[in-house]
Amino acid sequence: MKKIRCAIIGPGNIGTDLLYKLRRSSVLDPVWMVGVDPTSEGLARARELGLKTTDQGVDGMLAHVKDDGVQIAFDATSAYVHKANSDKLNALGVMMIDLTPAAIGPYCVPPINLKAHAGRREMNVNMVTCGGQATIPMVYAVSRVQKVKYAEIIATVSSKSVGPGTRKNIDEFTRTTSGAVAKVGGADEGKAIIIINPAEPPLIMRDTVHCLTVEPPRVREIEDSVKAMLAEVQQYVPGYRLVNGPVFDGNRVTTFLQVEGLGDFLPKYAGNLDIMTAAATRTAEMFAEEILGGRLTLAA
């Protein structure tokens, strides 16, 4: 079966984990890995797996995009260079999936709005944050039943799974996630809290989602909606589990989640990173299916 060819920009932990996932896909074919450091282990690993690589950044790949038929690119670098990467590749008709916090395109949380984005032929979608991918589906699970005036998420991640970029700009996580909790989750107001826990062995990502409903919560409908959403997310993150809840306390509805990764390249406890690469893969697959089905043509 024909596959859509992809490029990964950023051969770090995220980029490499993404590569493992893309290699399993029935509709995606990773052909390029782009880095900036000739000594990068990630580039070497990608080469061993048969990918073309460059250490000259996106510029090193541009001349080959057409010939190699690259149609989708993943950016797993940093917010600072994302826009430049995206502009250059969009100009060549390559659709961009942004795993950085740059968020120049619309937020994409697959079970909520992926279909809509594919339908609108977006050329750049942003994967929000790990905390956002893990929690926003559950905010939406409540808000699609009834009005949520306030949603708050607490993401607890193991110290080992939080890289220097996130640590240097932790406000970006808080700000982006709060915004997306409201905008994509469907709450009037959103708040996000991130806690980093250094325990050994590392803890598996935990997420708590509090929703405050306007009217008293419709218990049965919310329970069903949460269950359905859980199954949706589990399609691309099998280790997405409801540990407790939904708990109903007055107008508060709370779900307690755990996100275990697949352990492709990243360790299993780093469910926070896995849910990003899994959601990005899911997103690319949806676009790829549209392209393969003749419903979507990317315009250069």
Binding site: I154, T156, I193, I195, N197, P198, A199, R206, T208
Partner: peptide, 9 residues
């Protein structure tokens, strides 16, 4: 080994 801030747990 919960740390400060993990009141949700």
């Amino acid at each position: 080994k919960m740390v400060g801030g993990q009141e949700d747990m």
